[in-house]
Design a binder for these strands. Structure first.
Lengths: 255, 255
DNA sequence: CGTTCCCTTGAGTAGTTTCAATACTTGTGG
DNA sequence: CCACAAGTATTGAAACTACTCAAGGGAACG
């Protein structure tokens, strides 16, 4: 599989526009990165406000995007393997938020000057990189929907359904379950509630036969019911078959 | 000013990276667009799921991004003049959300094939376009923070503070006030509450001497207190002076 | 000048938070 | 291998925030 041939970038856009990448582009992308590094749980990978001249591919493990204000930390994003987690630092230079590793993670960095060359010489690949940053934006929008429209149980259900689907796309989900570095405090933060309340939500999800959230492990008991409870429609993840992007349109060819 | 020389794209990135555009790029960008068109209040400019081969510059008026689910509509974004409101349709091809005009608006369209040429031949301008889509993502993240962390009054205060600042950047704010096509139903939706409750919030904001929200007009009474109530830190808008982007780094030059 | 949409207010209820106390897990050192 | 500490999860009760239902008032538009 792609993960073996491309140990660093093999999961990038997997299940989405991966098939739109030429072999030349896959080789090129893989070659952009410096050596693989490891990061510990809760290690800050990128700090809000700092200047960066490199961006990060998440190879193994998880990460979260956080915004601080008055001692409070809000989790505003969750990243899985294959995510180019701070590619936007290339265009923004400074990040408006921090990126923190969750669990043991493997990452690889690409210096921005190499991305400049891609912009100059590989417009099609550049556009795929752009696409991947817009996927994050689409997920952000769905989180806004989730927080603005759903009660706590729906938010919890939506998040679990989303993560399961995203892990599935990059081959990191087992049948009906996945491992996670999140605890109930993280989950509460992501769902915009308190840990005490999310604990009752977790109990309710289990009692309703939708999903189980245990330390480090999530079991999807009834996927369809879970997705319904969370009003989860996966098309915003732009998976293959959802919006079927790239099938009817050639991406990146100037005409 | 730029608005006179460039009637269509003159407000694009104004107050942010506008100064990083060369005159050549400003001319080029202006020339990309077809004739200016008008749109009515609540007119759907772009429909979720449809295929598009053009993108839209918002010249005058406002627009909102909406996600539908089960008859419910959630507003997940708010756009002001100078916003390239669906540039992401260029990379995504289909949108995960709809874009709806608010009030009388003027827009102009650019066919995607012209953007292809920009990608191929103008990597620096392409990167500025990319930057502008990432600004939207940064605003999305802040909305997630707002919904996840603040109570209703803080959310209302945050939104008013943000819009005032954004309008200021494109020269569309008067001293301490601005006009808006939003009613309290919109405001409630944006803040993730009910109209009845936001009505009480509006009253509280007025009684606390922070801001007034009247039909079509918002008055900022005490900006500092309003921003404090909303935990509003404008740096995520990447205005001049905030993260001071582009000053210490050359943007877009491959080295 | 009436219709319609929007705003406003009140009262009861539901959802969520806060505070507090207890149990369970995991890791560490004796 | 057990004891302890620290973090995490669970439960209960009271307080609060926000929602729902309902009705009345005000502004805008034809």
């Amino acid at each position: 599989m792609q993960s073996e041939k491309y140990p660093i970038s093999g999961k990038f856009l997997l299940g989405r526009l991966r098939h739109a990448m030429t072999e030349h582009e896959e080789d090129l992308l893989e070659g952009l990165f410096d050596a693989v590094e490891e990061a510990e749980h809760e290690q800050v990978l990128m700090q809000r406000g700092q200047l960066y001249d490199k961006s990060t591919m998440l190879i193994e493990g998880f990460a979260m995007r956080t915004i601080q204000h008055d001692g409070n930390t809000q989790i505003v994003g969750f990243q899985v393997p294959g995510d180019f987690i701070d590619l936007h630092a290339f265009a923004l230079k400074r990040l408006d938020h921090s990126i923190v590793a969750l669990g043991k993670t493997k990452v690889a960095y690409v210096p921005h000057n190499r991305l400049h060359k891609v912009m100059d010489q590989e417009p099609h690949l550049a556009r795929l990189l752009w696409f991947s940053t817009l996927l994050d934006a689409a997920i952000h929008r769905e989180w806004i929907m989730k927080l603005g429209n759903l009660r706590a149980i729906g938010r919890g259900a939506h998040f679990l359904a989303e993560v399961y689907r995203r892990l599935e796309m990059v081959g990191r989900a087992q049948a009906g379950s996945f491992d996670t570095p999140l605890n109930q405090r993280h989950l509460a933060n992501i769902c915009g509630t308190t840990p005490v309340h999310i604990n009752r939500v977790v109990r309710d999800l289990k009692e309703a036969g939708l999903a189980e959230f245990q330390r480090g492990h999530v079991t999807i008991i009834n996927r369809q019911a879970l997705e319904k409870e969370g009003h989860f429609d996966p098309s915003y993840l732009y998976g293959e078959g959802d919006f079927a992007i790239g099938d009817e349109l050639d991406i990146g060819q100037a005409d």
